[in-house]
């Protein structure tokens, strides 16, 4: 325990940098994927044939091991192997694969009679989508977002294996030092804490955005 503390005192700056980078590398892809998943999920929801293609593509992406993807991307994109953009793109793809599916599921779950009632009240399609359909799909979409966020926080660690920052660097350092525990423990605790905090934040947003979803559970 004291070793962990002294490691923190000596390498505090490195740990902090790794944490900040971890946050960026994990959350930026989720944010990008979330924005992209809305139109794509809507497309999948709307058009039957697109559904099959998109969901199959998503499953295929998910089966590609993350390390392989991180090594493949520089070759495909012409980026440097050490460029963090590879991580961002790889994780965006994973998140997208998950979020397109949950967004479509969320939209599918909206009661069609409610949408019909909205049209009958005189909603035009765009306004109906943003003020009725999307809010009603939110509980399912946000549940998907929670899964994607937690998964990303853990997956970013892999990036350290190819020399990109994040808390994963603390693991690799521990191994390089002959299974020296302090950096490994610190990396583990911070990474779990980050996942928990991010999850709680999304839950807080969810409670704020969808108070009605809880009202039903009498």
């Amino acid at each position: 325990m004291s070793e962990v503390w002294s490691y923190l005192v000596t390498n505090g700056d490195d740990v902090l940098t790794a944490l900040v980078q971890h946050i960026w590398l994990a959350l930026l892809p989720v944010a990008i994927a979330f924005v992209l998943a809305l139109p794509l999920g809507a497309l999948v929801h709307r058009y039957g044939p697109v559904r099959h293609v998109a969901l199959t593509a998503g499953s295929v992406i998910y089966t590609v091991p993350s390390l392989a993807l991180l090594l493949l991307l520089p070759g495909l994109l012409g980026t440097s192997v050490l460029d963090p953009i590879n991580v961002v793109i790889a994780l965006t793809l994973y998140s997208l694969a998950l979020l397109v599916r949950t967004t479509a599921d969320g939209l599918d779950a909206v009661d069609p009679t409610v949408l019909q009632a909205a049209s009958a009240m005189g909603y035009r399609p765009v306004r109906r989508w943003f003020t009725v359909q999307l809010p009603l799909a939110m509980p399912v979409i946000l549940t998907g977002l929670r899964v994607a966020t937690v998964a990303n926080v853990s997956m970013v660690s892999v990036a350290a294996l190819i020399g990109i920052g994040g808390l994963g660097q603390l693991f690799t350092r521990g191994f390089q030092l002959g299974f020296y525990l302090p950096p490994i423990v610190i990396g583990l605790v911070l990474s779990v804490a980050l996942a928990v905090v991010a999850d709680l934040l999304i839950v807080a947003v969810q409670r704020r955005l969808t108070p009605w979803a809880r009202a039903g559970a009498r």
Partner: peptide, 22 residues
């Protein structure tokens, strides 16, 4: 126009069709 016409015609649907989020 459909939307304009519908706003001037009240519509009650089976099971009410209320907006659950409002």
């Amino acid at each position: 126009p459909e939307a304009e016409l519908r706003r001037e015609i009240g519509y009650v649907i089976q099971g009410a069709g209320l907006f659950p989020h409002r």
